[in-house]
């Protein structure tokens, strides 16, 4: 199911192996490389300060992207370790969070794709679905999160970046490495799918 999203306007492959996902993108272009030697680079101490200041926010983003807390911590550590490898090449006067967030998103999407393949192989029949709770209205948000987790990794990433990180469509497109139009369509389809599934689940309660 996750692979069906996009339909001809796929983003560029955002796997963690792509240079765009792991290399610092904040270094200036080659034309201005001569001037970068005098620029101050980030050091080890700034990494600790960054993690201390933004660790919680990044972990929450990772939790929403992954759906599970333990996976989120592992993904965040992996993303930070990838960023730490190139930390000394980042400009000190540029915010490193978009770079780390991009690594994180790419990692989660890649992992979800691998896991989806495994799940398709291992599960020969449909998994059991939980019965509708009598207290369903109260659990609206919980149901919403469950449905969010069932979306494809790219659609989920678009919704998390747009509605949790409050990134603009252009910023979201930059993080995902795709066009603004793709972000718009992915967000629209993701919301439509959530609404559709919520209507199905909440219909018996008259919500």
């Amino acid at each position: 199911m996750p692979r069906s999203s996009g339909h001809g306007q796929e983003c560029e492959p955002p796997g963690e192996h792509t240079r765009a996902g792991t290399e610092p993108t904040q270094a200036p272009a080659d034309g201005s490389r001569a001037g970068t030697k005098s620029r101050q680079r980030r050091d080890d101490r700034s990494f600790v300060e960054f993690v201390t200041a933004r660790g919680d926010a990044l972990l929450r983003t990772a939790s929403l992207l992954c759906g599970a807390r333990q996976d989120a911590e592992d993904m965040l550590q992996t993303a930070l370790e990838k960023a730490y490898r190139h930390w000394g090449r980042l400009d000190a006067d540029v915010d490193p969070e978009p770079y780390v967030r991009r690594i994180l998103v790419n990692l989660v999407i890649s992992r979800s794709r691998r896991w989806n393949v495994l799940r398709e192989i291992q599960m020969a029949w449909l998994p059991e679905t939980p019965a509708v709770s009598a207290n369903h209205a109260v659990e609206l948000r919980g149901t919403l999160m469950d449905e969010l987790r069932r979306l494809g990794p790219r659609q989920r990433a678009v919704l998390v970046l747009r509605f949790w990180e409050d990134l603009s469509e252009a910023e979201t497109a930059k993080v995902l490495g795709c066009s603004v139009g793709t972000v718009k369509s992915q967000a629209s389809r993701g919301l439509a799918r959530l609404r559709e599934r919520l209507d199905e689940n909440l219909a018996p309660l008259g919500s």
């Binding site: 939790s63 929403l64 609206l140 948000r141 919980g142 999160m145 969010l148 919704l159 919301l191 959530l194």
Partner: peptide
């Protein structure tokens, strides 16, 4: 849906 989604995310994390 958008505001509910924001609230749900905030509650979850």
């Amino acid at each position: 849906l958008e505001s509910e989604l924001r609230k749900a995310m905030a509650e979850r994390v």
